[in-house]
Write a protein that binds this DNA or RNA. Structure first.
Lengths: 333, 333
DNA sequence: CTGTTAGCGCATTCAT
DNA sequence: ATGAATGCGCTAACAG
């Protein structure tokens, strides 16, 4: 869509040097005499030259693009990961080129192919749920790949995240130690959100080990949201009024649950304890800070970028980075 | 970073046709016999061919990329705009390539130059606050540009958004009609967020016209957040206990204010009314749905893409699309 | 420290 | 409906 923009050749002519010299100045590569450099720089300035990266990318068979595949932008968690990615990228001159899969492996596959066609330096994906074709494309292209959020499975190359199963387990232990025994679970659709399910499984394991079991359970048949959490807790409480703690699939749901308690006049913690997952700001700004587990979304994005850019070729060894988590005691449990 | 990936030539050889025929099949362009098409398609399949868009872009001097410049990813509003952009793009085969400016025009300029180097089909930016160099680059490149969120100034090409000044004014009128008279304003840093300031100005105009003025005012010296809203309202109320309505710079701040009222035992609406801006889900899921103004973030992103892709060349006429807003009466004012 | 040569993979002419 | 020739703007590899 551009037009007769100035090219390397124009800059070179004006500066009285060869094209490759201009190229070197632009990329800060190779030794350049200060005098030439500044001559070139001023030529660039006066012409308003903007390099054409398509050409550069073609010539060097590589790009300064990093492909990012996110399942969704509706869940605040992924913009936060993207923010971490962006913060690590900012210093480097790389740009993220993003696609949204809507939790659909087939969509992921088609978007991946379209991202790969830009010869990205690396690919960042979410989770381990890929089609066979996706795996093949990744294998053929040999780009480095990071799979984020989760470390409960075997990665293609690099995994950065936390063990959701273990986080769920530890949350269960924590609550059991605090004396709760009649557990309710308030969840959302986990066909899409596989990690919520892993936390659920971890929780159940902890209960079983303590000779307990889930006392009640309600799952909203859609994505998580404050409103879903509010309504689903209402349903849970009306079906099983005697639960003493509600564990939510995440903080959004838990904040909604908190609102329900306010409305229904349920004394939070005294009569019903609430526990979330993620450690979002909104939960911590509640009149009673939410008891939850802090996951490090920014860090996950940041580390993924660092690790991807660190090495050159994809090594034989797979890499798993555990960004950990931390139980926030809070005031709701 | 790729390696010996198959190219058009390989596909052509395997299918027994010329390169250009393969190219035509890939791009669905020009007349192709069904027989050849399927032969080519299966060759593509067996080789696992992925087109190289850098080459395509170079040859055709255009790309299927849309540059998106966002001021921030921390404020939920911008991921939502991005979601609108993405939803409109999804059908088209375009990919967004994004940059985050942190509200800094100089950063915007450098990121823009880096985005332009990919020969994007169009550019989406936020607001009207650009450096001179930015304007020059945009003029030279001749790409179509949409400036989002705001329509209170003269756009380069297309503006999509709403009049924040008018929204602030209407909010003021609405509250005055409901009988409030001792207005407090709870804001955040508006050096960055120019639109918050426009709303503030609109509010002040409405007050002045009614023979009123702001009774009290507190501005948090940082970005908006629930916690900032909570603490800043606390400061406002302690300095001026007699305000009867608090107008917040946005919903995040207002939700924080609501939490403060809960904690401090202030009867919302009876003793102190609360009013926000944006119409976020979180505000509407409060025990008392927040009184606020709905801005249409998804729509803004969506329309921007549609308008950008609609025409070919940049026309002489500038285009301004008002996506409007709507006062949500809610229950907090 | 700087220049020469040769192509990267594809799309745009214009033919056939 | 298909093909041949040419070049997009840049960089790798080697010289010098």
């Amino acid at each position: 869509m551009l037009q007769d923009m100035p090219t390397l050749t124009d800059v070179a002519r004006l500066a009285g040097v060869s094209e490759i010299t201009v190229s070197r100045v632009v990329r800060n590569k190779g030794p350049i005499a200060e005098a030439t450099r500044s001559r070139v720089l001023s030529a660039i300035e006066t012409l308003g030259y903007v390099p054409n990266r398509a050409a550069g990318s073609l010539a060097s068979s590589g790009s300064q693009l990093m492909g990012v595949l996110l399942p969704s932008l509706s869940n605040i968690v992924f913009p936060e990961v993207l923010r971490g990615i962006h913060s690590a990228l900012a210093a480097t001159g790389y740009q993220p080129i993003i696609g949204v899969t809507d939790y659909d492996p087939a969509a992921e596959q088609s978007i991946l192919s379209s991202l790969l066609s830009w010869q990205p330096a690396a690919i960042i994906m979410t989770g381990f749920d890929h089609t066979e074709a996706t795996r093949r494309m990744l294998a053929n292209s040999r780009v480095r790949v990071a799979e984020l959020m989760d470390i409960d499975a075997d990665p293609i190359d690099i995994a950065v995240g936390l063990s959701h199963r273990k986080a769920g387990y530890d949350a269960g232990r924590h609550l059991i130690e605090r004396g709760y025994s009649r557990f309710g679970y308030v969840g959302h659709d986990w066909d899409a959100d596989r990690r919520a399910r892993l936390r659920y499984e971890g929780l159940c394991t902890a209960l079983k080990e303590a000779g307990l079991a889930l006392h009640a359970e309600q799952r909203f048949a859609g994505p998580s949201s404050t409103i879903a959490g509010r309504d689903t807790l209402a349903a849970l409480v009306s079906a099983s009024p005697d639960v003493d703690v509600a564990v939510f699939s995440n903080d959004d749901m838990a904040v909604g649950g908190f609102f329900h308690c306010l409305t229904a006049g349920i004394a939070v913690k005294e009569r019903l304890a609430l526990f979330g997952f993620n450690g979002l700001d909104i939960g911590q700004s509640l009149p009673l800070p939410l008891s939850t587990v802090r996951s490090n979304r920014l860090l996950i994005g940041k580390i993924a970028v660092e690790k991807l850019l660190e090495g050159g070729e994809r090594p034989a060894e797979k890499l798993i980075v555990d960004t950990g988590y931390e139980i926030i005691t809070g005031a709701t449990a």
